[in-house]
Design a protein around this nucleic acid. Structure first.
Lengths: 350, 350
DNA sequence: CGTCGGGCGGCAAACGTTTGGCAATCGCAG
DNA sequence: CTGCGATTGCCAAACGTTTGCCGCCCGACG
């Protein structure tokens, strides 16, 4: 038998367990065990170190695909976002990645663009990929069925966007309370005439924020001006449009405005500015999310803190617990008012 | 042979080609071909539609892991970032995802935290995963060797951060020109005494920006105040620290400051504000990147546009071309000055 | 009527692991 | 010297595809 004295020194692609076994003069299965910490005890110290040596020398890299086929696990978590350009999702990805990377798992990412068919296709694709779990931040009302059928196949947690009438595990954020906080804040500043800029109704956060706000408002003698429709998407452009529509009605404008997220608030501010309406002098403006930098705007935006980073992290931890067979259902994270310069007490002329 | 009349209606997990073959009374390989558009012509129209019918009825989902093992392709692109919380990377991910999602590929994401060992481990892990390609936005000077050895195994493109002295395919952005634009802008406003806040030297963008700036400055009679060291990371905190150090030297401060990125510029603004130095009245400030929202700050930040979204998209396209066997090397994207309120002409007292 | 060729489909190997079961070996005690 | 248990390593099957090759059948042509 010819003895191979020199080999390409390192990191050749395609070194397999079999190569190592041959080189070390043992059976592939022995190599597999020697390299697997949880099975290493099944192989003698001496053989083990020898095998490890050969593996290192040859630059062995386990073939995770092959392993995945055998074990049924891919060390992969799907992350499904509606719109990756929304600054709101970055911290979620960041938190998620941080929570799972230690366990050797990595997120694989897709974007639905808030389109139902795309959403369905992506879920399907992720199942085909045999991801070990899914974190979905793109849920809309109409997606419930496919979400639940996916959840029957693979651990799935909702993050960022809850889903009305579903009992899927999720990272819960109390949007209703957030809405209340916004109303309470405006109330405490003396505002009576208020309005909301509504995000799309099929994204469950927004109706909840709206309900919380309305409830507190009506319970405290505030007058809520009916808003001119709702946004098709929770974007700055839509916020601007809604605000314009509101101003265009000709009726006496509100002194306090609650936009259902920061992007819409920014859009609203543009619309107000274009009409010569000043924030906060003429109108107090409250957003939602506390996006990066909104605290450095002028005026700095008063907003409700949405703890995106923690949501991402919690989602990751939830998934990992689910994978471990635990039955955890939810994880709670509270909203918090961050009062800044875009709101101020109502004055006589305001 | 018992005829199975009723089956679980749909989407059971674990329907395999074999199940379909059995059900349709053909060989698995025929099913495989019938379902593969590029092989479908090898099977008669009738059998094909029958097979498709059975597949749909059973809710068949191809097992991408098994396919990957066989074909060697995973339909997966690694995206390696230094810091996912930097608003700068989101648009890159967005662009990348958009560019590859149509081809059924998805990014799998990891974060190096700008640590060399973590970086090496992640590259290795990605190779183990058998990703089809890599987009690396986390390159530092010391990472060259491992990057090049990875690039020998799998198509790899650099995006966001170039690498000094390397000929890896990359999405090129002319940082030097960006630096020049910053200097030229300040010069055109009459500024003579200027300073830079340096990003870390082992991230190649920053020395290039610095060189472009310095060259234009000295070539146009400007006096560049030596800066007090450089940032360890390109973050707001570090920008603040550098600016403080600069002010603390006691020498006459510059009237124009070029921060090597927007985050550092924001940190610098804080430091200036804390000392009662006004922007732009006392100091004109230029950043880099044009992060979302910096145009809405007060004053809105003058900055150099870094086309992150296009960089991400271009990186995705480059990878796909590389996968197609093309030999493309680079893709160019120009910087662009965006003059806003944080810079203004030098006045007698400024 | 024989042969050729093309269309269609089956066969089996291969991709690189993991893992349950079994065999061999060894040490040690009876 | 034999028997027994524990330790160590081997065997082979299995995970779900893809794909080169071969064979069958049918029609057409010589």
């Amino acid at each position: 038998m010819a003895e191979e004295t020199t080999r390409p020194p390192a990191a050749r692609v395609g070194i397999t367990l079999l190569d190592i076994a041959k080189e070390a003069g043992v059976h592939p299965s022995t190599v597999s065990r020697a390299l697997d910490p949880s099975q290493a005890h099944r192989v003698r110290e001496a053989t083990r170190t020898q095998i490890r040596g050969v593996a290192d020398r040859l630059g062995y890299r386990p073939h995770l695909v092959a392993r995945g086929l055998q074990t049924g696990r891919t060390a992969t978590i799907a992350f499904v976002a509606a719109d990756l350009s929304n600054p709101f999702v970055t911290p979620i990805i960041h938190g998620l990645t941080g929570a799972i990377q230690n366990d050797g798992m990595m997120p694989v990412i897709a974007e639905t663009q808030d389109d139902h068919d795309t959403f369905a296709a992506i879920l399907d694709h992720m199942l085909s990929r045999r991801v070990d779990g899914m974190v979905v931040a793109a849920a809309r009302l109409g997606d419930r069925e496919i979400l639940e059928s996916a959840a029957r196949i693979v651990p799935l947690v909702l993050a960022g966007r809850p889903l009305e009438g579903s009992s899927l595990p999720q990272v819960v954020h109390d949007d209703r309370l957030g809405g209340e906080l916004a109303a309470a804040h405006l109330a405490s500043l003396g505002h009576r005439r208020v309005a909301q800029l509504h995000g799309p109704a099929d994204v469950a956060n927004f109706p909840r924020r709206a309900a919380g706000f309305s409830q507190h408002a009506s319970g405290n003698g505030m007058v809520e001006i009916a808003s001119p429709g709702m946004a098709n998407n929770p974007t700055a452009a839509e916020g601007e449009r809604l605000m314009e529509d509101l101003l265009a009605t000709g009726m006496e404008p509100p002194t306090g405005v609650f936009a259902h997220n920061d992007l819409m608030a920014l859009g609203a501010r543009s619309a107000l500015g274009a009409r010569g309406v000043r924030v906060p002098d003429d109108v107090s403006l409250v957003g939602y999310n506390n996006l990066p930098l909104v605290g450095r705007l002028t005026p700095p935006l008063t907003t409700i803190l949405y703890p995106s980073l923690e949501v991402g992290r919690a989602a990751g931890e939830l998934i990992i617990e689910l994978l471990g067979g635990e039955m955890v259902k939810t994880h709670d994270l509270e909203p918090e008012l961050i009062a800044r310069g875009s709101t101020r007490p109502l004055t006589a002329d305001g």
